[in-house]
Design a protein around this nucleic acid. Structure first.
Lengths: 251, 251
DNA sequence: ATCATCAGTTTGTCATGACAAAGTATTGAC
DNA sequence: GTCAATACTTTGTCATGACAAACTGATGAT
């Protein structure tokens, strides 16, 4: 029935002198083979035991490599059946990146205008969102983001001052998440709410839209691995120029 | 410095006769302790080796349980330091559920009106989204979803006929994802695009909004674990009544 | 007093071995 | 021929043992 028994694809050799973990080497190699189509969608890969033996690694190591790709949506395992390729490229769960990074990646030449930058005690709703004490000092930022010469988004952020200090120049030249990461602060968890509403007169003017035009709204709070709140953001995007793309995967 | 050395919290006994895997029993028990606050945020839990010994399970099993909670954002591990509680409840990555389920869970008494239900060859854009051959027969559904007596969303779906056959009654009484699951079809992977635009006159009339009101739009394609396309959806929501909430976690 | 060095703690990686559970394919009885 | 029982394949779970790497804190030299 399943004629596509794994062809003897090229040996995946591992480098035991490398500091890269073996399971990761195996996973990366498999991912390459799949992305290049050398193992086609629907094809079954070799069973764990044989694969492990052929690579000269243990079965747990092989399992861990396969598991890694299963979690990324490339492979599917069924007990008693085998492991099958279901998608030729990684489906990332959801990116936790900033708009700026996305625009750079998409070659849309972003530019940032810093409209406001000051420190102030956090208003209650923002303190609540950040899960910090009311009145905690935060840096309040208002930015206008351009892409391809056109205004795209109006962004408001609050960052606790003891998390990061920011300058106008930094913000004009880099995305907020890049600045965070550069300071060793890695956002790991975030909650977002995405909605829509009509533009106010002032927003329409700033964003070069007609009054009452539809805007996408996004509010987000991001935490680092230690559970410390890094950033609260409340942004509006021109719906005519922007939308959110998400890849979901459910266990 | 860290005075909060793990108190000798109650023994977590495992049941080896249970069909539930040991690692999952341990993970669940730890999760309970954390959710109930018996292990507070910031506290360090026992190290893997001791914990394993005390529970009478192996270290890999303990590691797997802890890893499970780390991936869910409750715990953080640092080599040479230990494992710390960073959040008292699970942060789910993103749910892959239907609007209907969400409304039921939120006690907002959903109701569904089936406006249209017929089979037809998939138009090219929809066939492309589903990654099936152009002209593949699909069931085309148009539904109006109410919540709390008010219209909330206008939903269009295409489901390949060889995936599932649907009746008006089924659709009126249940959410689409519930019907899929009941047939043994589990959505595992989806890509979504969320945007916004102004309502057309017809949409405004149907949704009881003013003409030009802002609407949230969401298009989605969902696949099962085997990579088979289950559903394409193109929905519009009243922005005044609905927004998307997401929890993200980045590796 | 300050800084480098070293030992201790804790998680990270890997190997080997074993059995269980869930599918699939084959065999055999009727 | 049909259906149930059986054998086989493959992944899932678990144990034990070992060493490496990262971080912490104490020690010692300057």
């Amino acid at each position: 029935m399943t004629s596509d028994l794994s062809p003897p694809f090229r040996p995946v050799e591992v480098d035991r002198t490398s500091p890269v973990p073996l399971y990761f080497q195996v996973a990366t190699r498999l991912q390459e083979l799949i992305e290049k189509g050398e193992i086609g969608v629907g094809a079954r890969i070799e069973n764990e035991v044989d694969l492990a033996e052929r690579l000269g690694v243990s079965r747990p190591t092989t399992r861990r490599a396969i598991q890694y790709l299963v979690e990324r949506g490339m492979l599917v395992r069924k007990r008693g059946v085998g492991t099958q390729v279901v998608h030729p490229k990684v489906r990332r769960p959801v990116e936790l990146s900033s708009l700026y990074d996305d625009l750079v990646a998409g070659d849309r030449s972003p530019r940032t205008e810093v409209l406001e930058l000051r420190t102030m005690p956090a208003p209650d709703p923002i303190a609540a969102a950040l899960e910090v004490a009311p009145g905690t000092e935060v840096t309040w930022i208002e930015r206008l983001r351009y892409a391809g010469g056109e205004p795209l988004a109006l962004m408001h952020n609050a960052i606790p001052v003891d998390v990061l200090r920011l300058t106008r120049d930094d913000l004009a030249a880099h995305g907020l998440y890049e600045l965070l990461r550069r300071s060793g602060l890695t956002p790991r968890i975030a909650t977002q709410v995405i909605g829509a509403r009509s533009a106010t007169a002032a927003e329409a003017r700033t964003l070069d839209e007609k009054r009452g035009a539809s805007l996408l709204t996004m509010t987000r709070t991001a935490w680092d691995a230690g559970g410390r709140a890094l950033e609260y953001g409340s942004h509006v995007y021109r719906a005519s120029r922007y939308s959110f793309e998400l890849n979901l995967s459910a266990g």
